[in-house]
Structure formats: structure tokens, C-alpha cells
Amino acid sequence: MLAIFKEKLVKAPKELKSPAAWTKPKLSDEILQQFMRCNSSNAFSMCFGNDALLAYSPSNIHQRLFSGLDDIYCVFLGGLNNLSMLNKQYGLSKGANEAMLIIQAYRTLRDRAPYPAYQVLKELEGSFGFLIYDNMDRTVFVASGSNGHVALYWGIAADGSLVISENLDLIKASCAKSFAPFPTGCMFHSEHGLMNFEEPTKKMKAMPRIDSEGVMCGANFNVDSQSKIQLMPRVGSEANWASWN
């Protein structure tokens, strides 16, 4: 999986950018070309104007799913142990897969649900990482499960675009030193930033990450145990996945 979002659509965390001037990230077009070369037999890509790009290749080793509905697109990695129960809860058929479920949950919460995104993510049992792009609202939503069994990585391309993939080698080659693991147990929204959905009342803190060469390489984001966010209860149609509280 590869996702690239231009800077005017998504503001990447500034801490991801490395000050190492001698290493140069690639441009978005070069990153896509590399992905397609490495997955030439079964990969496809989708461009949404000049601002967003999704590329996908099925895997026979690990579950990797792609689904699109009503101009909402989801790439899901891993699996949910309670998929059947959640399908029933959201009114889906027994045959609906995890990517279909995530789209339905996102759409339900975006449009009418009275509780916040972190509460929904806590209901997902299993190993997972997923990315949603809502082309109608021009919104990006990314989440990674708490157990860390499904790894995602994010970085910054040469043109300032946010790059997301589960392929560490691709991220390293694309973003040079300006990348980091996407933090587990966390969700990122293009308008509201990063939050730990296990501890939603705590702020996230960027910690400089030094690689094996002693060079500052992006940042790790951890829960700041000393911080406190006041969560106000929400009711009615205003509560959705775009709201952290």
C-alpha cells in the first residue's frame, strides 16, 4: 500500500522532517513509479486530482484489503477477531470484510453518530492498520492497532507531501531521513492531528529519533503522561470521526 497526500491537503507533523541536508527525499511521482515497478504484476493506483494518490497491491502472505464506497476509500491491513459482531452492529452482511466495515463505521460516525472516533477504535479487536481517504470531504484518517503487529510508516517527500505505507524499505527510499514509524494505538486526522485512542485525555509528544548513523531521523510520537486534555461530551449530529471529543 502507498498513499501520498500533497501538503495543501494534509499538513504532516513537522517533526517528521529531518534536518539532515545531505539526504534528499524523492518527489511524489518518483515514489509512485518505484511502487509500481516493485509490484508490476498486480498493482494499481488512483489519483484524486493533483492532491491525493492511493496505490495498492494484493498480498498472498498478509491480509491486505482495498474497498471504495460513495467516494470513500479504505486500505486495511491485518484482521479483526470480532468482525462478525461488528458487521451485525453496523448492519452489514456476514460476508463484509474489514475494509468494508471501516468505511461503514467511518461514514456512520461522520454523518450521524453521537460518540467520538476513539471510542469506535477501542471496539476493534485484533491486529490492524488502516487508512481512509474521503474524497468528498477531502479528509485523511489513519489508525494503527495497539499491539503493534501491523506496522505503518509515514514520512515527508521532497515536495512536502505526506507519504504512508507499510513497506519500510519504500518509505526509507522515498523519504530519506524524514520518516518514522506511525505510532501504535494512535489515530491521525488531516484536520485535527494525532491522538492516542487508548489514552485520549493525554497529549502526544514528539521525541527526536536518532538512526544507526547518529543522524536525526524523523521523530517517535509518545503519550505525554503529564499532560491532560479536557474531553467534553458530545451529542447529536455534530459528533463524528472528525472530532476528537
Rank of each mutant, 00 (worst) to 15 (best):
L168Y: 06
K8M: 11
P181L: 08
V10T: 06
E191H: 12
F5K: 06
L109V: 05
F48L: 10
K24V: 08
K228G: 07
A105H: 00
P19N: 08
A117Y: 02
F128M: 02
L231N: 08
C217D: 03
V235C: 11
S178W: 02
D70K: 02
G218S: 10
G160H: 06
F221T: 00
I210L: 09
A143M: 08
Q104R: 12
N39D: 01
S161F: 00
F197V: 02
N39F: 01
N87H: 13
V215Q: 09
H189R: 05
N245L: 09
M85L: 09
N39H: 12
E213Y: 09
Y115R: 05
R209P: 01
P181T: 11
D51C: 09
N60G: 11
F44Y: 15
L168K: 09
C74V: 10
Y153W: 13
A55T: 07
L53V: 13
A113H: 01
L69C: 12
A219Y: 03
N240M: 12
S40Y: 08
V75S: 08
N60D: 15
N50Q: 09
C175V: 00
F35E: 04
A143P: 05
V163S: 01
G78Y: 03
L109N: 14
K24D: 10
A43W: 05
A143C: 13
